[in-house]
């Protein structure tokens, strides 16, 4: 039987969930025996080359590109997992929700304390750039999400346990230590 195919991506996240994923340490050797990686920052494959079994999504959607990538993942993965607070709820980036987009852009590019180099007061509007959304959306409001792994970030053990459960079909063991955050 061929190995299950895994894809991962970071949308409006900080890559912290991917870092946490790498915290599985030496188990990564075990992992590459168990799965084949496709589109993912881990192997740097940029586009899907085949249909995948599992897609791990870090981060919510703050711009048009995030939406395209997420929809692409839905199309190419049998199972989609929201990994971490940002994918599940929008997380830190969603702090801007409730503040008008105009105000955010003004603060980021025109008025904020770090805009000194933008002497020409340019707002990013090149057609090649992703378009900013009115707010940050959690992934499940855009596409169907099958599973959610909570945490900021979810611990390496949680990600590991969940992946193993998905691959083997065994029941997911979630001891308290793995999902407690206080």
């Amino acid at each position: 039987m061929s190995k299950p195919v895994l894809a991962t991506t970071s949308l409006a996240g900080c890559f912290g969930c991917h870092m946490s994923f790498l915290d599985i340490d030496e188990r990564i050797l075990e992992l590459i025996e168990l799965v084949e990686f496709n589109k993912s920052p881990i192997d740097d494959i940029k586009t899907f080359t085949k249909q995948c079994d599992i897609g791990l999504i870090e981060g919510g959607c703050c711009n048009s590109e995030n939406i395209h990538v997420l929809k692409d993942f839905r199309k190419n993965c049998k199972i989609l997992v929201s990994v971490g607070e940002c994918a599940i709820m929008g997380g830190l980036p969603a702090l801007r929700n409730g503040i008008p987009v105009e105000e955010c852009l003004r603060e980021a590019y025109l008025d904020g304390p770090t805009v000194g180099l933008n002497t020409e007061k340019i707002l990013p509007n090149d057609d090649e750039l992703p378009m900013l959304l009115d707010k940050v959306y959690p992934c499940h409001e855009i596409v169907k999400i099958d599973y959610y792994l909570p945490g900021c970030p979810p611990t390496a053990d949680l990600i590991w346990n969940a992946l193993i459960a998905l691959i083997t079909g065994d029941e997911l063991k979630l001891p308290y230590e793995v999902v407690k955050f206080d």
């Binding site: 852009l105 509007n125 378009m131 009115d134």
Partner: peptide
């Protein structure tokens, strides 16, 4: 599953402010 997300609506405000035609 059904999403209520509407891309045209979601980018309208920011595109208007940065002076760009939504694509």
């Amino acid at each position: 599953y059904m999403s209520e997300f509407d891309m045209s609506k979601a980018v309208e405000e920011s595109c208007k402010y940065v002076d760009r035609v939504p694509n």
